[in-house]
């Protein structure tokens, strides 16, 4: 008995750290599994055969083709009532152009805030920053009213323009420009560089990671800006985007889970690719607002 106790104690001393690490790893892996569960389930269901969307089997008893098929994707992309390929194109145009316009106007403003002096500068800057505390829902009704009066319903302008004034973008870029050593600007000015030359020859090369970050964040934000895209588009609009298309599809075929998940996969895939290749830029931008170094 004493021997056993002693050997147990020795064993514990030898392995307790490893055991503890294994335990922590298991907790972490379980949490990651839960976080990825919806994504995993979306992909699995998207390949299920018609009518099997609620099936929870993953491994079929017989051959794979008993449970899985590619026909959801071909059916969705060929659907005339719900042209998902068109929705995909619309989403890309809306999110892409919003990101370009927004980054450009934020860049110009951030340049002025970082490099110029003018009356009321810090006051205006403070006012812009304070506006970030206003919940976005407040703008829905008046922005919609403006859009109808401008005749911008069902149009590119209506979808894109109201969301290009991104205050967070100015914040991000102003910081990036102010981090560039002053001597570089002075050298450029001595050489007689114009504002445009300074912007494109000095700032753009040196702060390109931040510009890319801002572009990506705006793109992702507008890719899933569902509420606004829902109210600016009527169901017969040529500008219906992926999330709106999916919600309309759900309204009509609320039990066609396999097809809904196939459409969801189409909507998620571009974002997934962006994340896999550019996650460094996305994460760094999102964290800059929250942590001060």
């Amino acid at each position: 008995m004493k021997e056993l106790k002693k050997s147990l104690k020795l064993w514990w001393e030898k392995y307790s750290i490893k055991l503890r690490r294994l335990l922590l790893w298991l907790v972490l892996a379980a949490l990651a599994m839960f976080a990825l569960l919806p994504l995993f389930w979306m992909f699995i269901t998207a390949f299920k055969k018609e009518g099997l969307g609620l099936q929870t089997e993953i491994i079929p008893k017989g051959s794979l083709s008993e449970l899985y098929t590619l026909s959801n994707f071909t059916a969705i992309l060929a659907d005339k009532d719900f042209p998902f390929f068109r929705f995909l194109l619309n989403s890309t145009i809306v999110a892409g152009s919003a990101a370009i316009v927004s980054s450009a106007i934020c860049f110009m403003s951030a340049y002025a805030f970082a490099r110029k002096n003018f009356p009321g500068k810090e006051f205006i800057y403070g006012l812009l920053m304070a506006s970030m505390m206003v919940p976005g829902m407040i703008f829905m009704v008046p922005q919609f009213a403006l859009i109808t009066q401008f005749g911008w319903m069902n149009s590119w302008q209506g979808l894109v323009i109201p969301h290009t004034a991104n205050v967070f973008g100015i914040f991000l870029l102003r910081q990036a420009i102010e981090r560039i050593p002053k001597s570089l600007f002075e050298a450029a000015e001595v050489d007689g560089a114009s504002d445009w030359q300074i912007m494109f020859l000095v700032i753009v090369p040196l702060s390109s990671p931040v510009l890319l970050t801002l572009f990506l964040l705006t793109f992702l934000g507008q890719w899933s800006n569902f509420l606004w895209q829902l109210i600016v588009n009527t169901p017969d609009s040529p500008w219906i985007t992926l999330p709106v298309g999916i919600s309309l599809f759900k309204g009509q075929y609320s039990i066609a889970w396999e097809k809904m998940m196939a459409a969801s996969v189409i909507s998620v895939l571009p974002v997934l690719l962006l994340f896999i290749f550019l996650q460094r830029y996305i994460i760094s931008g999102l964290t800059q607002g929250g942590v001060k170094e």
């Binding site: 976080a35 569960l37 969307g53 999330p243």
Partner: peptide, 26 residues
Amino acid sequence: SRFFRSAIFLPNILDMLVIGLVWKLI
């Protein structure tokens, strides 16, 4: 750890509508 970090962060940037729809199914 690096993989777990990316995996757990990923759902954050995915389309809310789509993620909501999958949860409705689950």
